[in-house]
Write a protein that binds this DNA or RNA. Structure first.
Lengths: 159, 159
DNA sequence: ACTTGACTTGAAGCGCACTTCAACTTCAAG
DNA sequence: CTTGAAGTTGAAGTGCGCTTCAAGTCAAGT
């Protein structure tokens, strides 16, 4: 059972919570790497688990795989995720989350104001035109992006 | 210019901010309806603008077109969006937004705690496993869905 | 050696919400 | 009546993040 050092794809799948097909996909996309046995089977280093945890966290924050690839490229092997690196990244993620939260709160508040009016006017109702409220909270051009859903590592996690 | 009562597809597109192709799609999907001229062209009643405002608002809250279709079906023609109806809907939307906000806040707080540890452990790091924090805030099975992005009616709105 | 389960690949498919295309028709102004 | 913009259709394409499939190969226990 103690397979020395390298992990098979199903082992990584089980421990990371990602499907094996997703791991293959991530490898093709350059998010993770794997060496090969003589017969061509993948063998992952244990560090891939940490990398995958980073990927899952980033996905939860709403980053696309493209964006994650860029961030991963900046921490070459994620071997030494310098405390400074992690601080920089987490600050940027936090900003992102804050913006998303603000956008949702603005939307919720607009909804609150709509309960009274029931207007849903295309030109003035805050529910149909959240941009103004959002723009007030952030100096971004007026587009607040929100993540699709929270991804969670299935039951049997890393052990 | 004052085209009596009925609107062409491009007029509706301009006033609603939805692309004409999206309007065709919505019609096929049963979200909106249109009568036809002798030659087969669509003619929309002005009430479709209100319906589209509702759709845009719902999309902003994160509802899928399927969900929107269901909600629209419950207010037959959206002619009399009973104050009670709108109250019920906005309360449900608000719940939804609250859940999303809570999920994001939990994620942000987890991030905060990660700044110190830099662990990203698959088994315990809050960033990779937001489910616990989220589950604490809502009695849902543990899946918090977030909308993809805020859609906004382009410049030339309803006038 | 044999068996069996894990693994390999490229290609295709999926779900959602649309957009784009090509080929053709209609509408309305002049 | 002519013309050109605007409209019509079904089919196919797009983007993202995977999953599924078929057909075949590898690894490891007995």
């Amino acid at each position: 059972m103690d397979s020395k050092q390298l992990l098979t794809v199903s082992e990584v799948a089980r421990r990371s919570g990602f499907a094996a097909s997703a791991l293959r996909y991530y490898e093709r996309e350059g998010l993770i790497t794997a060496s090969r046995t003589g017969g061509g089977q993948r063998r992952f280093e244990r560090s891939v688990l940490r990398r995958l945890a980073f990927i899952r966290a980033a996905r939860n924050v709403g980053l696309s795989l493209d964006e994650i690839r860029v961030e991963l490229a900046e921490l070459p092997e994620l071997r030494t995720p310098t405390r400074a690196d992690w601080g920089r990244i987490s600050r940027s993620w936090r900003r992102r989350l804050d913006e998303q939260i603000e956008a949702l709160q603005a939307l919720r508040d607009g909804l609150q104001s709509c309960i009274g009016c029931g207007c849903l006017s295309l030109r003035s109702c805050a529910m149909s035109n959240p941009g103004d409220a959002v723009a007030a909270g952030s100096d971004q051009a007026g587009a607040a992006f929100l993540p699709p859903l929270l991804r969670r590592a299935p039951e049997g996690d890393d052990r």
